[in-house]
């Protein structure tokens, strides 16, 4: 039973990271290798703001929001000076460009924050556990789960209900037509890319008390987030949400049924998913 709750936690943590990744894919059609690095920068920025012992949940969330803003601005810089310039070249050049951006980011994180491990504690209020129907659940897990759900709901609303989403969807579906209709396409893309990078930064801040800060932090989540985005159907936020939960549950079952091979089921599950639903469980989406 605990395994399931924890699977949900893992899933939501991964979703927080994957949300921005799938969004940027929906708009720009690129698999952003640098996403993990921006997640890491978000975490480092938030840790600098909040110190090693945040005073309250609010302080942590505020730090995460500021980190999101910083990373969002960085994202706009990257979009302006790198991605936009090679937008019309083969998509694989985007890949190598984001790979290069990742290397540069990791290099600068090492220079700025050093190599020593840093750690941020969960703030009071979410640093213990609660009993739910005689099941011990760490309250930080509840924090992650609710953060994931909130981010998903907000994102879903923005994309499927609000006018911003309609505009971005229009741009993603047919930029040329959108332009004809009087939508400021470059500004729209800029906002959306900034938004998806900001999501990476936000995830970095929110997950801060869960992980240890090291320059390798980006790698821990990048592959899992990739898998989520692919299983969910590229660019499909709802798909990513479901895929993240599935992934968390698979990982949970893995530790329960095959404790000798931790972390293997995720890959096997992914290969199976890809062969059964080659376009993701909810299909590819241009938002």
């Amino acid at each position: 039973m605990f395994t399931l709750v924890n699977g949900l936690t893992t899933g939501m943590a991964v979703f927080l990271v994957a949300a921005g990744l799938t969004l940027v894919f929906g708009i720009m059609r690129i698999l952003n290798f640098a996403h993990g690095a921006f997640f890491m920068i978000g975490a480092y920025v938030a840790s600098t703001l909040v110190g090693s012992a945040p005073r309250s949940v609010l302080a942590l969330v505020a730090a995460a929001v500021v980190a999101a803003l910083v990373v969002g601005v960085l994202g706009i810089v990257v979009q302006r000076f790198v991605l936009r310039r090679i937008q019309h070249v083969d998509e694989h050049y985007m890949l190598i460009a984001t790979f290069a951006v990742m290397l540069v980011c990791v290099g600068f994180v090492k220079l700025i924050w050093g190599l020593e491990f840093l750690s941020v504690d969960p703030p009071p209020g979410i640093d213990t556990g609660v009993e739910i129907f005689s099941l011990f659940v760490p309250s930080f897990s509840l924090f992650i789960i609710s953060s994931g759900v909130v981010v998903f709901l907000v994102l879903d609303f923005v994309i499927h209900r609000a006018w911003t989403g309609k505009m971005i969807t229009a741009i993603a579906r047919d930029g040329w037509m959108a332009e004809l209709l009087g939508i400021n396409v470059p500004a729209g893309i800029m906002a959306a890319v900034g938004g998806s990078f900001a999501l990476a930064g936000l995830a970095g801040g929110l997950l801060l008390p869960n992980q240890t800060l090291s320059p390798a932090l980006g790698d821990t989540f990048l592959l899992l987030a990739f898998i989520t985005v692919v299983i969910g159907g590229l660019g499909n936020v709802r798909g990513a949400f479901i895929a993240a939960i599935l992934l968390g549950l698979i990982d949970g079952l893995n530790t329960m049924l095959l404790p000798a091979y931790p972390g293997v089921a995720v890959y096997v599950g992914m290969v199976a998913f890809l062969l059964l639903w080659p376009n993701g469980i909810l299909g590819e989406s241009r938002l």
């Binding site: 460009a97 290069a100 951006v101 290397l103 540069v104 980011c105 220079l111």
Partner: peptide
């Protein structure tokens, strides 16, 4: 990392 990344970026 910075050197390799910058050169790659420059070439791309």
């Amino acid at each position: 990392e910075i050197i390799t990344g910058s050169i790659l970026l420059g070439v791309v």
